[in-house]
């Protein structure tokens, strides 16, 4: 949302002023414990994370704390990040793929202040990437951790209103209902109409919400070398996908899962592979498509410029 408005900034690659590369560690505000949360809270959250890693895709309850920003702004992701951050980590925060939106900027500033860690906009340089609604285009590596902000961790939420029943369904891997939803999609629309937050099976066992990332990003979760952690602050749930874990998007044999992207090239870098945002350029209906992943786009533009 905010990212779309901020996107068509000068195509010269001059975005992210003053924050192009990793910024050196700041001295953290000693009025706070390192990374804001107290050590026992971090331990509690780490235990939840470890349990989540041990049971891939399973939602682990945790004692979510009040954070100095409202629910919906990534309180779950922030608590996870705060619990895993060390002084030598390099943090990247993206919102809808962009590093320069209000949410991303605020969270980055928050951790600079309370943890004094280095921050970056470069996917390759980051050790921890907190994200809302996207997975970076660049393939993540074993040394990295991707932290998702999750508004609603329960994938069966809209299908089964009773929380106790959804728990039983997970416990028994009783997921026929999720396929009923996909069946209804195809019956009504001719195809599976879910384009984001597309449900996945983790390690062939747990049905999981990938958070509201576009379905386009789902294949990146499968056997990803990086550790993926998910934090839902309001719903007080943490879950995880360990490195190299199978993550399969639900589908039918005759209606296989297809990651969808706008059939255009990025107006800035020309990419035909990346996920695109549609940006309105004037009030006469003019629009362009640009990469949602600003770091990816910037890097491609720089490479192109260097080659010319």
């Amino acid at each position: 949302m905010t990212s779309a408005a901020a996107k068509p900034s000068p195509p010269s690659g001059g975005r992210g002023l003053g924050e192009g590369g990793a910024q050196g560690a700041y001295a953290h505000d000693t009025g706070y414990n390192f990374a804001y949360l107290d050590e026992s809270t971090k331990r509690m959250i780490r235990r939840a994370i470890l349990k989540g890693v041990a049971i891939p895709g399973h939602q682990v309850p945790f004692g979510s704390r009040e954070m100095p920003l409202p629910y919906g702004w990534g309180t779950g992701g922030i608590q996870v990040t705060a619990s895993i951050l060390g002084p030598s980590d390099v943090l990247k925060v993206i919102d809808q793929g962009a590093d320069d939106t209000t949410n991303a900027v605020s969270i980055r500033a928050f951790f600079r202040r309370v943890a004094g860690v280095a921050t970056t906009e470069r996917t390759a340089e980051a050790t921890v990437i907190q994200t809302r609604h996207r997975i970076p285009e660049r393939q993540l590596t074993e040394g990295q951790i991707l932290v998702y902000q999750v508004p609603m961790p329960e994938p069966l939420f809209r299908l089964e209103a009773r929380v106790a029943e959804t728990k039983r369904m997970h416990a028994l891997a009783d997921y026929g209902l999720m396929h009923v939803k996909l069946y209804e999609d195809i019956a009504r629309h001719g195809h599976i109409a879910t384009s984001y937050n597309y449900p996945v099976m983790v390690d062939g066992r747990y049905l999981m919400s990938p958070s509201p990332i576009p379905a386009f990003d789902n294949p990146k979760m499968d056997r990803m070398p990086a550790l993926q952690l998910f934090g839902a602050g309001r719903e007080k749930r943490i879950y995880a996908v360990p490195p190299y874990t199978a993550v399969r998007s639900l589908d039918f044999e005759d209606h296989p899962f297809r990651p969808i992207r706008a059939p255009h090239a990025c107006a800035l870098c020309g990419s035909r592979e990346s996920y695109l945002d549609e940006v309105i350029t004037d009030d006469r209906g003019g629009k362009i498509f640009v990469c949602s992943d600003t770091d990816y786009c910037t890097e491609r533009q720089a490479t192109k410029a260097a080659a010319e």
Binding site: Y175, V180, Y183, I186, R188, D254
Partner: peptide
């Protein structure tokens, strides 16, 4: 849920994965 979805649920719950 549609009539078809209602009938299909038990099939899907027991592993049917071919929409047609």
């Amino acid at each position: 849920v549609s009539a078809g979805g209602n009938i299909g649920e038990r099939l899907m719950a027991t592993g049917a994965r071919h929409y047609g």
